[in-house]
């Protein structure tokens, strides 16, 4: 299914929760959605037989300086089509519902986004740091991250 058709179906079903279709020239194009309704949209995209996006290829955090984003790349093994879903979050309180009960593989990637960007995934089964040590301060991939001078007595 083409990105435009996916977007039209989502827009018809979820209304204002689906904002726009962007990314001409991107593969895949992506649908911008409201963060609060990302879980219902994810559940619909997975379960609807016309879509059956059964694979979450990638979940990434992005820092746009004035805001954050979470990008989901979905792929369907059955229909062999793909779509991106993106949600923009305010910089002060970056939080979004988790999708780890939609695609269990989301958990590790959400933990990575939490670890490196400080994006909070509400309702996550297990939201801990995954790469950095548990007592690390700050989130290093944020654009305004200040490097510490020492970590446990070793120069950073």
């Amino acid at each position: 299914m083409e990105a435009q058709a996916i977007f039209d179906t989502l827009k018809g079903k979820f209304g204002d929760a689906v904002v726009e279709l962007k990314g001409e020239g991107c593969t895949p194009a992506f649908v911008v959605v409201v963060p609060a309704s990302v879980k219902e949209i994810a559940m619909f995209l997975r379960d609807d037989p016309a879509f059956s996006f059964d694979s979450l290829m990638c979940l990434s955090g992005v820092d746009y300086k004035e805001k954050f984003a979470v990008a989901y790349h979905l792929h369907s093994m059955k229909h062999r089509h793909a779509i991106g879903v993106k949600a923009f979050l305010p910089r002060e309180t970056p939080s979004i519902p988790t999708v780890d009960d939609v695609w269990p593989a989301a958990n590790f990637q959400e933990r990575e986004a939490f670890d490196l960007f400080g994006i909070v995934f509400e309702g996550s089964k297990d939201l801990r740091r995954i790469l950095l040590p548990p007592d690390w301060e700050g989130h290093p991939l944020r654009k305004d991250y200040k490097y510490p001078d020492f970590y446990h007595g070793i120069k950073v």
């Binding site: 950095l132 290093p140 991250y145 490097y147 070793i154 120069k155 950073v156």
Partner: peptide, 11 residues
């Protein structure tokens, strides 16, 4: 790099 030690002789 925030995570790599800049030489094992620091440790």
């Amino acid at each position: 790099s925030y995570c790599v030690v800049k030489g094992v002789d620091l440790v």
